[in-house]
Computed example of a mutant assay.
Amino acid sequence: MATSSSNPTIVFFAGAFADPSCFDRIVPHFHKAGYPTVYASTPSLNPLDLSSASCANDASETRRNALLPLIEEQHKDVIVFTHSYGGIVGGAAAAGLSKVARASNNQEGGVIGLIYLVGNIASEGESLLQAVGGAYPPFIKQGNPSPGLAVIDPVIPTLYADADTSLAPSLEAAMIPHALAAFETPAPTPAWAESTFEGRRAYIRTLDDQCNPFFLQEMWIEKSGVSWETVDLKTSHCPFISCPEEVVAKTLGFIEKWL
């Protein structure tokens, strides 16, 4: 394996309702394998100003704050790792930044590949709400704790059905309100639609998912109209909590092939 200095940096895009620290259980395994990591922070997560919340703003801000410093300033290679709503944010943030495209313009660094862990896939101009069928599932509690925000309830069966029961109090406490506008505003152009990511799109499906059921994952992949390499985990929505080593092993399997 390459040394850590030449390994790409993995940039993590968390799902809705979650601080990026949700990935704290898997990151040490990537560090041990020699991969640096960065967390992208999504502005629509419990924002001070609801009027600025949108899917496009999430994408542009994470691009500006997480991806561009690595790629344009430090000329680093990057892997975009997304979970759930992070698929829409990270997918749009990475648009136009593929290493293949940048190399053709004699630019160093770029996004080597896209990893979607049960990541939401929305076409350009489509909102997440439209992508899930146009209606919120019953576990999305709209207007909670205040208008324009939502939380997931119940937390454990929806997101962490297979997690160690001793973690339940901390996992419930980690539920953060999210701006509904993020899910109701149109998604920007996604990186996965670019031909330069052919052979560099990976989707990890979660077979026992109560949040984004397997049939939705299948529908998104098919509707994207592009090819994805897929692997399956027999887990709930957040396997980085319940089986971090498995998530890392599947992810590194893709990355090492791309390198």
Rank of each mutant, 00 (worst) to 15 (best):
T185L: 12
T158D: 02
G96N: 04
I121G: 03
I152Y: 15
N105K: 14
A33I: 09
P244R: 02
F215W: 08
D162Y: 12
R25I: 13
A14D: 04
P169E: 06
A122L: 04
K234H: 15
L252M: 11
L45V: 11
A135T: 10
T185E: 05
L233Q: 09
A249G: 15
P43H: 03
P43L: 04
S60G: 08
I140H: 08
N65D: 13
F197S: 00
P190T: 04
W228M: 00
L180S: 09
A135R: 08
G15N: 03
G113N: 00
D58Y: 04
H178T: 02
L180I: 03
F12C: 03
Y203A: 00
K76P: 06
A92R: 02
A66P: 02
F139D: 07
G119C: 08
I79H: 04
V11N: 03
G113I: 02
P186V: 15
G143E: 05
L252C: 08
W228F: 10
E108Q: 13
P190Y: 07
D162Q: 09
V247S: 05
S123M: 09
T206L: 11
A161I: 12
L50I: 11
C22W: 12
A187I: 09
F23L: 06
S166M: 11
V248W: 09
I26W: 03
L149A: 11
S41Q: 11
K99N: 12
A94P: 02
V100S: 06
F215R: 05
G133V: 05
D162S: 12
L114P: 01
S51D: 09
A103T: 15
V231I: 14
Y35V: 04
N105Q: 13
A163P: 04
T235S: 14
T165L: 15
I140V: 15
A182M: 06
R201E: 01
T82S: 06
L167W: 13
L207R: 05
S21E: 05
K257Q: 12
Q142N: 12
A33C: 11
N57K: 10
L67V: 05
Q130A: 13
